[in-house]
C-alpha cells in the first residue's frame, strides 16, 4: 500500500515542477516587478501612477469597451450557432462544427490579413473605420473559442429537459430562456473567459487594421520594448486582478443558479 501511494504521488512531480517554473514563478516575477521600483524597493508608486494618468486609465476603458463589445457580439453569434449545431436534427453535425472551428487551425495573422482584404474591398480604405474593423476582426478571430464551450455545454444538456419544458406548456422561446440558457451558464461563462481577456490584450489585431489607439496589451508591449519591466509587469498584474475578479463573480453567479433560485 505504502509503496503504491508513493508511486502515485511521484507521477505528479513533473506537473508540479511545470507549475512552479511556468506558472507560479513567472507570476511571482510579475508581482515583484509590478510592485517595486527600478532599484528593487517595494513601492505602490507604479500602481498609483497607473490610475493617476488619464492616458493609462483611458487605455483601460478603451480596452474594456472593446472587450465587452467583442465578447457580447461573439456570444450573440455563437449561442444560436452552437444551439443549432448541438440540438439540431441533421446528419454530419460534427462536419458543420468543423466549419466553424476550422479557422482555429489557420495562423491568426493570416486570418486577419484575409479579413483585412475583405474589409478593404467593402470599405475602400481601412483607415476610415479603425474601431469597427478592430471589433470585426476580433470577433472573427475569437468566435471559435466562444462556440466550443457553448457547444459542449449544450450537447451535455439532456433532451429530456427540453421535452419536460415543452410538456409543461413552454413554447420554443420560453424553453430557451427558462431552461436552456439557465442550464448552460457554465458554458457561457467559460466562453466569456476565453474571449474577454484576449480581447483586452491582443494589440496585434489593432496594429494590423491600423488602429493606433492603445489597448492594455499595447501598453504592456510598449513598456517592455522600452525595458520598463516594472510598469509592464504592473499592467499585467492589473489585468490578472480583473480576470480574478470576473471569475469570482461568475462562480458566485453559477453557484447561485445551480443552488436553486430563491423566490
Amino acid at each position: 500500500m505504502k509503496t503504491s501511494n508513493f508511486e502515485r504521488k511521484a507521477l505528479a512531480i513533473p506537473y508540479a515542477l511545470f507549475m512552479v517554473f511556468f506558472v507560479i514563478f513567472p507570476l511571482l516575477v510579475i508581482l515583484y516587478y509590478g510592485f517595486t521600483d527600478g532599484e528593487g524597493h517595494v513601492s505602490l508608486e507604479n500602481f498609483l501612477n497607473f490610475f493617476r494618468s488619464a492616458k493609462t486609465v483611458g487605455t483601460l476603458i478603451y480596452s474594456l469597451v472593446i472587450a465587452v463589445m467583442v465578447t457580447a457580439i461573439c456570444l450573440l453569434i455563437a449561442y444560436p450557432v452552437a444551439y443549432i449545431l448541438a440540438k439540431g436534427e441533421y446528419a454530419r453535425k460534427h462536419a458543420f462544427l468543423m466549419v466553424f472551428v476550422l479557422p482555429m487551425w489557420i495562423n491568426f495573422t493570416l486570418r486577419i490579413t484575409a479579413m483585412k482584404e475583405i474589409l478593404t474591398v467593402l470599405e475602400g480604405n481601412l483607415a476610415y473605420h479603425p474601431f469597427m474593423n478592430t471589433i470585426i476582426c476580433m470577433v472573427y478571430d475569437f468566435l471559435p473559442f466562444m462556440i466550443m464551450p457553448l457547444f459542449n455545454s449544450l450537447t451535455k444538456l439532456d433532451n429530456s429537459m427540453l421535452e419536460a419544458s415543452a410538456d409543461l406548456g413552454a413554447n420554443k422561446w420560453q424553453t430557451i430562456f427558462k431552461v436552456v440558457i439557465p442550464l448552460t451558464i457554465p458554458g457561457i461563462v467559460s466562453g466569456i473567459t476565453m474571449v474577454f481577456l484576449p480581447a483586452m490584450t491582443n494589440y496585434v489585431v489593432l496594429d494590423m487594421v491600423y488602429n493606433s489607439t492603445y489597448i492594455m496589451g499595447s501598453l504592456i508591449g510598449s513598456y517592455f520594448n522600452a525595458y520598463d519591466w516594472n510598469n509592464g509587469s504592473l499592467i499585467s498584474a492589473i489585468l490578472l486582478m480583473f480576470i480574478g475578479l470576473f471569475t469570482i463573480i461568475t462562480n458566485h453567479l453559477i453557484a447561485g443558479e445551480e443552488g436553486g433560485r430563491r423566490r
Binding site: D158, S160, M161, E163, A164, S165, V179, P182, L183, E257, E258, G260, R261, R262
Partner: peptide, 11 residues
Amino acid sequence: FQKYALFPHLN
C-alpha cells in the same frame, strides 16, 4: 419522464 427530468436550476 423515466429519469424525472426535473430542472436542476430550479427548486
